[in-house]
């Protein structure tokens, strides 16, 4: 099995001319299959930019990034779009569609997959919702769910498409300690079960224990990255 994320010499800058500001400098990072990596660091250290590059949400400027076997340095918009369909995204805010109920939100991920009927989509959404413990809440819109429940729906939405990689951006930021830890443990458990790797950006020291490895960033550089896959 190939490593889901292999970054080499990745640099990224925002702005033009005088205002040009380098946010990533020569970053190298390799994730093993099924590995859970936490990315920490002060704000402005470039960790979110790194996450958007791995998620194929931005064009790569310099270096090489192989994500799920796709070389992003050569990928066009179309290839990045289809790569994104193989990645599960979990945002700081749940970003669920307010006018859909929980299972419809989860089924949205499957609407882009060819060959699935409406009944199959909803059945799979129900399965994953049951796995995150929301079976009896599946017909509720996000406005009737608690913060932790919403984030669990978001996890179900990210997992239902059987992604090869999960990218999470401070998923516990909007949650209290107990539900934050509960949500992250759930995510970890489900990823383990399915063998999916997770790259998670977080400020939250309370959840560092779920990681296989913690990578710290500062000033656009990785400052501590014990090589993965060798232990």
């Amino acid at each position: 099995m190939t490593d889901p994320v292999v970054l080499e010499g990745v640099s990224h800058a925002f702005g033009e001319g005088e205002l040009r500001r380098l946010v990533l400098r020569d970053v190298a990072l390799r994730m093993a299959p099924g590995e859970i990596v936490l990315l920490t660091g002060p704000s402005g250290s470039g960790k979110t930019t790194l996450l958007t590059l791995v998620g194929a949400l931005r064009a790569l400027q310099a270096g090489s990034a192989r994500v799920l076997g796709v070389e992003l340095a050569e990928a066009g918009e179309g290839q990045r779009l289809s790569l994104r369909r193989q990645i599960g995204f979990i945002f700081q805010n749940h970003n669920l569609l307010g006018f859909l109920d929980a299972r419809q939100n989860v089924a949205m991920t499957l609407e882009m997959q060819p060959g699935l009927g409406e009944r199959q989509r909803l059945a799979r959404a129900d399965e994953v919702l049951a796995a995150v413990g929301l079976a009896e809440h599946r017909h509720k819109p996000p406005s009737q769910l608690s913060g932790g429940q919403r984030q669990r729906v978001a996890i179900a939405r990210a997992l239902v498409g059987e992604p090869g990689l999960i990218l999470a951006d401070e998923p516990t930021a909007a949650l209290d300690k107990a539900s934050g830890h509960e949500v992250v443990s759930l995510l970890r458990g489900m990823a383990r079960q399915r063998g999916v790797s997770i790259l998670m950006v977080t400020h939250d020291p309370r959840i560092l224990d779920v990681a296989d490895r913690v990578v710290a960033m500062e000033d656009g550089r990785i400052v501590s990255a014990p090589p993965a896959g060798r232990d």
Binding site: G55, L81, R84, F89, N95, L97, M108
Partner: peptide, 18 residues
């Protein structure tokens, strides 16, 4: 008023055409 939701859908792999 649904800009975040639309951006989320784009991140999930929904195309501009969709």
């Amino acid at each position: 008023s649904h800009l975040r939701e639309y951006a989320t859908l784009k991140a999930m792999g929904y195309s501009n055409g969709y």
